[in-house]
Amino acid sequence: MIEIIDLKKSFNVKVVLDGVDLAIEDGKTTVIIGRSGVGKSVLIKHIVGLLKPDSGKILVDGKDITKMGEREFTEVLKRFGMLFQGAALFDSMTVAGNVGFPLKEHTDLADKDIRGIVTEKLRRVGLVGVEDMMPADLSGGMKKRVGLARAIVMDPEIVLFDEPTTGLDPIMSDSIANLMSETQKALKTTYIAITHDIALTYKIADMVAMIYEGKIIEHGAVEEMKKNANPVLRQFLAGSAQGPIKVY
């Protein structure tokens, strides 16, 4: 279980996270929603240690990762996988090189065995025969799929998704949503996604949290959230310019 307690982060004078409290349940998909620039990416980057908080705690199975030394945190990171917004595939490697990279770095598996696992993970995300292609030759949707295959190749306990459908057409977005849903159910992994895509949220979320003005203002099961009367949440879910959320 991941618990975020009173997490604060500012960049110069701009307060981005102003005391975030959130508990993420194991084996479920939690979707963190909020407007662009509200601090969703900042929050997710704290969970994987890419940013250090000004104050607050992030507990993974009760241990505060913000206080860990590099070696201890490296072991924690091996339990994570992450799909970046632009997939962040290594340009210099083939698809197979990208997906098999964590296995090559962290295991003693033979190249042949790694290739087998890579092919299986690629098949799981709906890609066949792309092993020797370069990332530059892939479409946006294919890159995301390869990124997902790489994120799950080590069978992590927790997978984080940074805007998984941004930049994709609605059909490809739905396809990625289906894929996330299927892989989560099959692997029983904890999925944490940040997005402003409401269709994706409804499709994959078990739990939804909304971040607004540096805080989690609502958190609950997706069905509860649909009925929630909070005007900020209602406006966001409705995708309306009219309401308490200021449009700049």
């Binding site: 890419l50 590099e70 994570f80 962040a88 770095e105």
Partner: peptide
């Protein structure tokens, strides 16, 4: 620089690779 702005360096870090 390209690896940095396309988050490839962040990806390395999240894969527990320094």
């Amino acid at each position: 620089g390209t690896m940095r702005v396309t988050e490839q360096i962040d990806a390395l870090y999240t894969m527990a690779i320094n």
